[in-house]
Write a protein that binds this DNA or RNA. Structure first.
Lengths: 200, 200
DNA sequence: GTCTATAAATTGATAGAC
DNA sequence: GTCTATCAATTTATAGAC
């Protein structure tokens, strides 16, 4: 009875471990330079066994993307607990600054994945990374909208664009300080935004 | 006499053709997904002959980077003809907007290369893409400095970061309009910048 | 469900004829 | 200088034993 449960639990565990390690290694090494053997080794799973859980390498990439997507959900859910939309956005920016060392070393996980997946002939995964970015854009737009700002979606575009840009530059120049400086500027920018006066 | 010149001229031509096509194809397909055969075919050079001009694939990547670097030089030299630094920056932004279709399809050539080269274990090419970005940062910083603005280097960082960010988003979402909208915002931002009053 | 062995294909790079 | 043929290594994916 107990024996029939354990293997199943371990099987689900292996799948999760593979997805988790895939997310980490694909971020660090990139999609093309990462072999299935790399991921299998990190997840402590024999190479041939990988195909029992993921039929192709693309499916593993997709699983990694889902991991990042889940992390994003977790973060926005936590931010939604804050009553003030402006505080939510500020806390988001502070989270980016906190991650500056990782960003300087490997870039934004979703952003670099988007760049890499775009260069693939397949065409099946091209849009997937865009979906994650779009969700972040929509959540940000909601916050600007709640603040009563005009053009909330343009503000969201500016914010996320700034994040992707500073991550890329921090990564290209290997300088985490870029994240800190541009992050501080974004915080100041947020403070300067005012809703149009509705009383007139 | 004339015969001895022709082959030499054609040899230099082949090298240039290889570099030109490498720059184009590496931008479109990415470094890892582009084979030497791809570049050789596009440059109309037999595969085995490529190694006479470039000893390794990395050297071809480096040559492609030099091409992009030369294009950047050409652009800034042209912009330097304009008397007003602010006009130089505005014309630069307008050039970005003009390239929106290419950016939406393949991203910024230097930016995507920087992302890809960072993911390589080699370590020899990691810094090379950063060098090109840094030159653009320095040129921009010079313009802000000429305008008498405080923190010219931070302004440059904001500008180039915005460019990289909007290119990445336009590419990830396959939407050239993002370049147009964010470009317009940058133009407005440039107009709003004022030098600190020196008379007081 | 798990794992080993190996197939099948691709690709960076070289040898050597012309 | 130019090109063909090919090597050597890597990597995705499968077949089949346990």
């Amino acid at each position: 009875m107990t024996d029939s449960v354990k293997p199943r639990a371990r099987a689900a565990d292996k799948r999760r471990r593979l997805a988790t390690e895939a997310a980490r290694i694909l971020h660090e090494q990139g999609v093309e330079r990462t072999t299935l053997a790399d991921i299998a080794r990190a997840a402590d799973v024999p190479v041939g066994n990988v195909y029992y859980y993921f039929k192709t390498k693309d499916e593993l990439v997709l699983a990694a993307l889902s991991e990042h997507s889940a992390h994003l959900d977790e973060l926005t859910n936590r931010l939604d607990q804050l009553p003030d939309p402006r505080d939510r956005l500020k806390t988001l920016i502070e989270a980016w600054i906190d991650q500056r060392e990782v960003a300087a070393r490997y870039g934004c996980p979703t952003g670099t994945l988007a760049v890499e997946l775009d260069k693939r002939a397949d065409g099946t995964l091209d849009a997937e990374a865009g979906t994650v970015v779009r969700r972040l854009l929509e959540w940000s737009g909601d916050q600007f909208r709640a603040l009563g700002l005009s053009d909330p979606d343009d503000h969201a575009l500016t914010l996320i664009s700034a994040y992707q840009g500073m991550s890329l530059l921090a990564n290209a120049l290997r300088d985490p300080d870029i994240m800190a400086r541009q992050g501080a500027r974004l915080l100041h920018w947020l403070d300067s935004l005012e809703a149009p006066d509705q009383t007139t």
